[in-house]
C-alpha cells in the first residue's frame, strides 16, 4: 500500500509589530501548493509564542517574515528558544527587508536562508526541500 509521503511541516509567523503580512501569506500559499503542511500563526508573535508553536506542532521548518527592521533583536531570540526546547534540528528561514551585513551575521548564528523582495517562490520551495533531506 502506498503510504502518504511524510509531509514537510512549516510554521509561518510574523514576529514583532509590523503588520505587513502579504509576503508571509504568499509564501504560505506557495508552500501549500508544493504539498507542504503550513501552520500559519499570523501577526504580532513574540519569539516565545513562535518557539512554543514550533514545539507543539513538531515542525521541520520555521519561516519568519520581518519588515520592521527588528530582525537583529527577534531572530537570535527565536533561535535561542528553539535550541533551549531541544529543537536544534529545526531549520529557520527568514524573509523581508534584511540588509546584507545583517544577513551574513544572521546566517552565521544559524539562519538557513534569507529572502528579500523579488525572490521566486519556487526558489524557496526548492531550498526548503533541500534543507530538510
Amino acid at each position: 500500500m502506498r503510504k502518504a509521503a511524510q509531509k514537510i511541516r512549516v510554521l509561518i509567523a510574523k514576529p514583532g509589530l509590523d503588520g505587513h503580512d502579504r509576503g508571509a501569506k504568499v509564501v504560505a500559499r506557495a508552500l501549500r501548493d508544493a504539498g507542504m503542511e503550513v501552520i500559519y500563526a499570523g501577526l504580532r508573535q513574540t519569539p516565545e509564542m513562535i518557539a512554543e508553536a514550533a514545539l507543539q506542532e513538531d515542525v521541520d521548518v520555521v519561516g519568519l517574515s520581518i519588515l520592521s527592521g527588528a530582525h537583529n533583536a527577534l531572530v537570535p531570540r527565536v533561535l535561542e528558544l528553539l535550541h533551549a526546547n531541544g529543537q536544534e534540528n529545526v531549520k529557520v528561514f527568514l524573509g523581508g527587508i534584511i540588509p546584507d551585513d545583517d544577513a551574513d551575521e544572521l546566517k552565521e548564528i544559524g539562519v538557513t536562508e534569507i529572502y528579500g523582495p523579488g525572490t521566486l517562490t519556487t526558489t524557496i520551495v526548492t531550498q526548503i526541500r533541500e534543507a530538510i533531506v
Partner: peptide, 30 residues
C-alpha cells in the same frame, strides 16, 4: 488540498490567548 496534498492550518491564529500556558497544548493537523 486534494490537488497538491498540502494544507494551510490556520486555527492557531485564533488561539493566541492560550500561548505561554503550560496547561494547554494545541496541535494542528491536516
Amino acid at each position: 488540498s486534494p490537488f497538491s496534498g498540502g494544507a494551510i492550518l490556520g486555527d492557531r491564529v485564533r488561539m493566541r490567548d492560550l500561548s505561554g500556558d503550560a496547561g494547554v497544548f494545541i496541535r494542528s493537523m491536516a
